[in-house]
């Protein structure tokens, strides 16, 4: 499974072949297996993530979607008993190679979590911290500019520009999440991974994040794990359905939600899973 021809970008849903062929592959993953100790959480997942697209990972709890997401920037490394097998390539480079600087990888592949987790520092420092330690910017002026740009991109600038030195934790939940997105953007990543970024937010804050995700797509590649199928349908171009550690089906979002090919996908998205 691990040695699949890299030129073969198309998989699972043949009807999309022509559209897929035109896209640039950002992540190329083949035969991905993840174990937590003895327990296998992912079985031979073959999935490509395309540049400047939103890919949604859906599936019931424990299906492996978050586990898969975390293999992409090696967040699983932090779990001792976790082992990852298979091929995971970012722009053709093996993510799990010994030569990879994991800190640098996570700057390229940023992450936003379920619960907004701003640093217990000022709004300004939340954004400035990353670029400073990664050496992306040094001078005050340069950092000011990154802070402003990141907050603008995260649609938060207008709301916080007059109180940048107030604590980030003082913002509302939705604002905190946008702050976390701004923080992820500030280190100029190529990919942003989002693990249920709206599950702690109200519908209005959720709508703002979804609008933001769509805007961010121009500059970033986004992979989002979500429990809300409506959200997957609204924000993503491609949807991958996981079940019991298998990637069951992946395809163009419109197709997955109207004419899924696999009965399990059908059952899940229509609310028949039991």
């Amino acid at each position: 499974m691990g040695e699949v021809d890299m030129s073969n970008k198309v998989e699972v849903t043949a009807p999309m072949a022509s559209a897929d062929a035109a896209r640039e592959t950002k992540f190329h993953t083949r035969g991905v297996q993840v174990f937590y100790g003895e327990k296998q959480a992912l079985f031979d997942v073959d999935l490509d993530i395309y540049e400047n697209e939103v890919t949604a990972l859906i599936g019931p709890s424990g299906c492996g979607k978050s586990t898969y997401l975390r293999t992409l920037n090696r967040m699983n490394d932090t779990i001792d008993i976790c082992r990852v097998k298979g091929k995971i390539e970012l722009d053709g480079t093996d993510v799990y190679s010994d030569k990879i600087d994991v800190v640098h990888l996570r700057a390229r592949v940023g992450m936003v979590f379920q619960k907004p987790n701003p640093f217990p520092k000022s709004i300004y420092e939340n954004i400035a911290y990353g670029p400073r330690i990664h050496g992306i910017a040094t001078g005050k002026e340069e950092i000011d500019q990154i802070v402003e740009e990141s907050l603008i991109k995260a649609s938060l600038w207008e709301e916080v520009k007059d109180r940048l030195d107030e604590p980030g934790t003082g913002l509302s939940g939705g604002q905190q999440q946008r702050l976390c997105i701004a923080r992820a953007i500030a280190v100029q990543p190529e990919v942003i991974l989002m693990d249920e970024p709206c599950s702690a937010l109200d519908p209005i804050a959720t709508a703002r994040i979804e609008e933001l995700i769509d805007e961010l797509r121009d500059n970033f590649t986004i992979v989002i794990v979500t429990h809300s199928m409506q959200q997957a349908a609204r924000v993503s171009q491609r949807t991958a359905f996981f079940h019991l550690g298998d990637l069951v089906e992946v395809g163009e979002t419109g197709k997955i939600f109207t004419t899924p090919q696999d009965q399990r996908t059908q059952d899940y998205i229509t609310g028949r899973f039991g």
Binding site: M229, Q230, A233, F257, T258, T259, P260, T265, Q266, I269, T270
Partner: peptide, 9 residues
């Protein structure tokens, strides 16, 4: 109900 897939059909 926001039906999907075969339900929508």
């Amino acid at each position: 109900r926001q039906p999907m897939a075969d339900d929508l059909r």
